[in-house]
Computed example of a mutant assay.
Amino acid sequence: MRLILPLSLVLALSLSACSTIGRPVGNPSVPLPAQAVEVEAYLGTWYEYGRYEAPFQEGCEAVTATYSLEDDGDIRVVNACTRDGERDESEGEAKIVDGSANTRLKVAFFKPFYGDYWILDHGLQGADGLYDWSIVGEPSGTYLWMLTRQAKPDADLAMMLEARVKELGYDWSMVRLTRH
């Protein structure tokens, strides 16, 4: 099994601010996350609906991100995808930024290098107590991910995600939808 760089949390690998140099910026003024996040409602497995393509994600399909709470309060992150017919997986940890209402995290896949992970918006909690969608970005506007609880969201949710991404100031033409 090959170790891949972070999928839906790719920005967590940012070794420095230089990681975004030369990358297209899809949103020059990323808004701060607007609504608080209940950690328990964010845990579990997410399916990547779409993303801004990054070199380390090229060729990745069937992308998932699974979050679980550790005893120390940190969040275990497991990102996976299928590339060239093989399943790739990467494991990391996330720390919630104090005073962020759980909307901003620092994520590391290769310590001590942490990157920003901002939960810009999310859906309502369903009957299972979990959010049903999430839009994730980071301060540079270079990376963007849309996550859903189903591998293939219905047409209404897909349209809503596109509209919300645009409302947040992102360039939809840069979005690459993920095949599952």
Rank of each mutant, 00 (worst) to 15 (best):
I135M: 05
V97E: 10
L7V: 10
S173A: 12
L177A: 11
K166Q: 11
L147N: 05
V107H: 00
V165G: 00
E93F: 15
P139D: 00
S19W: 14
V175C: 07
G115D: 09
A108E: 11
W46N: 02
V78Q: 00
L168Y: 02
V136C: 04
R149L: 06
G99K: 11
D128L: 05
Y117Q: 05
I96E: 03
S8Y: 04
I135E: 05
K166E: 10
T178F: 04
Q35T: 13
L7C: 05
Y47E: 03
L9N: 15
S68E: 06
S173G: 08
E93K: 15
Q57P: 05
L147V: 05
F110S: 03
D156A: 15
D121F: 08
T45N: 03
W145M: 04
K166D: 04
S68M: 04
G141C: 01
L69R: 09
L157I: 07
G129T: 08
L130W: 00
G141E: 03
L161H: 02
A127F: 09
N27V: 12
T64D: 02
F109I: 02
P33K: 12
L144E: 07
L9W: 08
E167K: 12
A41C: 08
P55G: 13
D116M: 00
V77D: 11
R83L: 01
L3P: 10
S140Y: 09
S14N: 14
E93N: 13
D171L: 04
V39A: 11
R76P: 00
A62M: 12
V10Y: 04
P55R: 07
S29R: 08
P33E: 10
K95E: 10
D171W: 02
R2E: 14
N27P: 10
E53N: 03
A17G: 15
D132T: 13
I4H: 15
T148C: 09
I135C: 09
T64H: 00
F110T: 09
L168F: 01
